[in-house]
């Protein structure tokens, strides 16, 4: 993998080739600075030059949905949990989800309410989500077929891998849909969405602290990233 792939798209488009060349010339000792530089830039979207109008906002919206997707996978991995739930039967331990859902709604790229943009969005949605929908259907049919009622160890591992690969594929395609959806939300909306998401993730991290330490650390890292990016956008 090229190191420049770790950088925000606008930076990659301008300096990607030079970053890779510099890293090749300098060797392994340049990796810490290269990684820290990428992380600093991701946390400061106002530092990105723009190739196209709205490029920064669109990239931040996709990054926000990537954070949401990663969080969902993490939370799925630590289920079931008594301290961290996501259902209406346990409102006290599910409250963390409210700011996250509000944040996702704020960050969703909404097209203008006219026929042509809505038609384009519908076509994009069908094109982007057909393959993950087929993967989910195959998963459900496999589960309900009864063929693998008592699978051997290698088959069980393969089925588990297929399950997680399907979840990751859905997450990837949803992020791709956000990227292709056209109209990006305003910087103000994105900042509020990131702040809400960061708050929800911080609450989730706190709730899972006693039961799942690695997931807590990952959720806390995602919360900090969301809150830091929200702060940078708000300053702009």
């Amino acid at each position: 993998m090229r190191a420049s792939a770790l950088y925000p798209p606008a930076v990659r488009e301008r300096w990607g080739a030079e970053i890779d060349d510099a890293l090749r010339d300098t060797g392994a000792r340049a990796w810490p600075d290269t990684l820290a530089g990428a992380a600093r830039l991701w946390l400061h979207p106002t530092d990105w030059p723009e190739t196209r109008a709205g490029q920064t906002r669109r990239t931040v919206a996709v990054a926000l949905f990537a954070i949401l997707a990663l969080s969902t996978l993490l939370l799925r991995a630590i289920e079931p949990s008594r301290t961290l739930t996501a259902d209406t039967a346990h409102p006290a331990t599910s409250l963390w989800l409210a700011p996250i859902l509000l944040g996702a709604a704020l960050a969703a790229p909404l097209p203008p309410l006219r026929w042509e943009p809505l038609r384009r969005l519908a076509v994009q949605t069908v094109r982007t989500l057909t393959a993950p929908a087929a993967a989910v259907l195959a998963l459900i049919l496999t589960a309900r077929s009864g063929v693998f009622a008592s699978p051997s160890a290698p088959v069980a591992v393969a089925l588990l891998a297929y399950y997680w690969a399907t979840l990751a594929f859905i997450a990837h395609r949803l992020c791709a849909l956000v990227a292709r959806a056209g109209t990006a939300p305003s910087a103000r909306r994105l900042s509020a969405a990131l702040a809400l998401t960061g708050t929800g993730l911080a609450a989730a991290a706190a709730q899972s602290a006693t039961t799942a330490v690695p997931a807590t650390l990952a959720l806390a890292a995602l919360a900090i990233a969301a809150l830091a990016t929200a702060r940078d956008l708000a300053r702009a």
Binding site: A3, E18, L23, A30, D33, T34, A36, T46, E50
Partner: peptide
């Protein structure tokens, strides 16, 4: 001293932005 790639291209991006 040379700057590391992250510092150099981060600075170039910020200055261009």
């Amino acid at each position: 001293r040379k700057l590391g790639p992250g510092s150099l291209y981060g600075a170039l991006s910020r200055l261009e932005a």
